[in-house]
Amino acid sequence: MKEKLINNLNEYVSMLDERFGNKKLWEDFLITVAENSDDVFLAKQEVLKNVVDFIGIDNFILAVDILSDSLAEFPKDKVLKAALKIMKDYCNERDMVVKELKEALGELAVPIIRVWKDIVLTPLIGTLDSERAQTMAEKLLEFVADVRAKYVILDVTGVSFIDTIVGGFLLEMVNAVRLLGCDVIMTGIKPDIAHTLVKLGVDFNAVTIKRDLETGLKFAISKIEKGVSV
């Protein structure tokens, strides 16, 4: 196969060039195939990557078919195997990027801020899925314990709808915060949210409700200046 390939190199290159373009690419590709037919592209991954990048995986499969039709003993299996490995690498890279993006998004979506000595503010924005709600609860509790907060202001102004599952999560989070000896003030509750929370049986003795962030913050600060009250 090697000899036939090298002898007719120009012919094959033209054929592929006509179909897909980029003569040099095909030349490098075919030479590499000819050289390392035992472990195709192991040493020269770049070459294969360039081809796949250039024409995409569908066309690559097509090109491989064309070649194996015109050239007996073209190492179709080995070439495709090598291509699969490259695709796996791409997938892994992309997975890592997705993971980083998810993390960044997670951080953004639920900021936890210490706004005053002993007061932590968590403004909820948008919707929470249950996995993010779980992560948020864990982060909030760690933070509250670290800074020894006395109040958590949970502002839900940015939330127009929560389902009962996320509502339940929030409730659990509130209860957990209280187990740390920290009080929870909820602010910015919209009508739909109020509806869901009441249906869920929120214990309003457990949570202080204030109309908005400003009122909530004022309340917490005044409590702290006065000293702890039970």
């Binding site: 609860a137 864990e138 509790l141 760690e142 659990e172 957990a176 740390l180 000896g181 039970v230």
Partner: peptide, 27 residues
């Protein structure tokens, strides 16, 4: 109460009654 323990208790639905909670001896 450690944060993770607090979360577990809350998620189990446990209600500890008649007790005050605090984070440290000072409080």
């Amino acid at each position: 109460i450690q944060p993770h323990v607090a979360l577990t208790l809350a998620q189990m639905g446990v209600n500890i009654k008649g007790i005050h909670f605090a984070m440290d001896l000072e409080s």
